[in-house]
Amino acid sequence: MQENILTPKLVVKENKFCPGCGHGVIEKLICQVLEEKGLENEAVGIVAVGCACLITDYMGTDWIQAQHGRAPAVAAGVKHVRPGKFVFTYQGDGDAAAIGLSETMYAAKRNEPITTFFVNNGVFGMTGGQMAPTSLLGQKTTTSPFGCDYSKAGEPIKLAELLATFNVGYIARGSIANYSELMKTKKYISKAIDCQIQNRGYSFVEILSPCPTNWKMSPVDSLKRIETEAMTYFGCGELKGQVQND
């Protein structure tokens, strides 16, 4: 009984994410919410490239794997021809904020009725920990060995704020740094899904997430780093569409 509560049926396979990785936790949150809303059979996810795309093996919705960065465009194509489906993208920061920034922005610009779950862990995970557009200033990565330098890389992209300049349905940023933040993030995911199924347009949830492997930190210290550094820089909360559902 307890197992049924803890593991949603949509989680069809044990994940192989690194120990302490945020993806498994976020996957479970999304699965829980989809099941609570009875959307298991209508949901179709679009992934592209990076650790995020491993989710297609573990999460039992239909999936399409897009080219790097293009998931929001693929999602829009699906939603146009099958408007009854719940269409979401699941993307990392290299994918949604670097190579796919244009596709991400234009999905919001056109207010496409799709939902993006954006996992921000500040590094390119799968390729081995290179600098991401969301790497914090001073952060050491394999391509910023002396620390992320404003004079070279500029400032970390606040994607939720960029998207909130458009008149879209729902935008929020949460984290999974602790239980309280996790529960808030679950609420944001739920509201983003409601936004789409109630035809209120584009929705987006950014989730600050740990990458202990590439941060070269323990899982516990990684969560602390989110609380002390990432949440301080990015800030968490709802940026758009918070009125309708509260």
Binding site: A73, V81, S102, E103
Partner: peptide
């Protein structure tokens, strides 16, 4: 049917990929 003028050819063929994956002629 559906017509979308996309921001680039990259987005155009990606959107087509989504619709075609659903069995539609694109």
């Amino acid at each position: 049917g559906t017509f979308v003028q996309t921001e680039s050819e990259l987005a155009g063929i990606s959107m087509l990929y989504g619709a075609a994956s659903c069995g539609f002629r694109t």
